[in-house]
Amino acid sequence: MPLAIIQPTAAHTATVIFAHGLGDEGESWRAVISGDYDYRKPGELTIPAHLPHVKWIFPDAPEQAVTANFGTRMSSWFDISNLPLQPGQYLKKEFEDDESVKNGVQIIDDLVQAEVKDGIPESRIIVGGFSQGGALALVAGLGGKDWRTKSFGDENKLAGVVVLSGWMPLRERFKSRISPHAKSMPVLWGHGTADAVIYYKVGEVSVELLQDQLGIVKHTADDQLGAPGINFRSYERMGHASCKKEMEDLVTFLGSVIPQQQTPNL
């Protein structure tokens, strides 16, 4: 599978696996995270410089027909029958194909297990994503053995989940398939109030469903990033994109849940 990677510059003690959105590729998010798009002030550190111990993996989704785009083949983690996602539609039916969601989760799960094999414990691995990739990360991060069949997810716990401009897919089946660790999982959920692809309200409703139906704690914007539960962060006037403040929140979250570890003296 094609991968874009940012290698750590210090001892490798944690990994972030980040899934791109529909029709995109991993290289796009490698560029965002590495600071190729110059939004920084002179002397300001890049995200990888803030987290030198972290390896970043940005996989490419397989090409497949996407019903929402009239069956056009494109990079996609799973098939979806409707876009944009608006709150009224979201609450009426499921738009995601169950089997292809499972296939997407297995891609992420294989990457998790490859990192574990290389010596990074699952408790030091984050799964995240943007838009469709964020929806996939939510399933991969909170899902139990019905989804994470390669790692027997009920017995393992990731360090946390990052959902940027995403939603809860397969909402009518989600509750029956979650991991026993779901309630204690730290989740950063960022969403722009001007998102016209995955509407902001869809993100809000998704978090409310996770709170009401699954008992997952929803934190306020003033609460510390990295605590168990979902910290939902709104970004005013941001569309279906990311912004500097969201990236700053991402660094804070990752620094909390996968802090740099001191190398023991030998």
Rank of each mutant, 00 (worst) to 15 (best):
I216L: 07
N231I: 01
E122P: 04
L138K: 03
I120Q: 05
K175G: 05
V161D: 00
D154E: 09
L138W: 06
L225C: 03
V197N: 03
T193I: 07
K145P: 00
V162C: 02
A140R: 10
R173D: 14
S234P: 14
R171M: 07
D195K: 07
A135L: 10
E236G: 07
G144Y: 13
S131W: 12
E204Y: 04
R124K: 14
A227P: 00
L142H: 04
L209G: 01
G141F: 03
Y235M: 11
R148T: 05
Y200E: 10
G192A: 02
E122Q: 13
S206I: 04
I198L: 07
D146G: 13
F174K: 09
R233Q: 15
M168S: 03
F174T: 06
L170P: 04
E204I: 12
L158Y: 05
L214S: 05
K150S: 12
G134F: 07
P228I: 14
I125A: 07
V217R: 15
G133F: 02
G192F: 02
W167T: 09
Q224I: 11
A241I: 00
K175H: 04
S206P: 00
R173V: 04
S131L: 13
P169S: 07
F130K: 13
M168W: 02
L210S: 05
L164F: 15
T193D: 04
K145D: 15
L158R: 07
V197R: 00
M185Y: 00
L188N: 04
V202E: 11
I230S: 11
R171A: 11
G133Y: 02
D154H: 12
G203T: 10
H191T: 08
T149G: 05
Q213L: 14
A221K: 14
E236T: 14
R237L: 09
E208M: 05
V205D: 02
E115D: 08
R148V: 07
L136I: 06
I125S: 09
V202T: 11
S206L: 06
S176M: 11
S184Y: 06
G160R: 10
E122K: 08
H240V: 09
S151R: 10
D222G: 10
K201C: 00
R124C: 07
G226V: 08
T220S: 15
N156R: 15
A241T: 11
G226P: 05
S176P: 00
E172Y: 12
W147I: 09
R173E: 15
G166N: 07
Q211W: 04
P169C: 08
L225H: 04
L164S: 11
I125M: 11
G203Y: 09
Y200H: 15
G143P: 08
G229R: 01
L142M: 14
V197P: 00
L188C: 06
D154M: 07
A159N: 03
D118P: 03
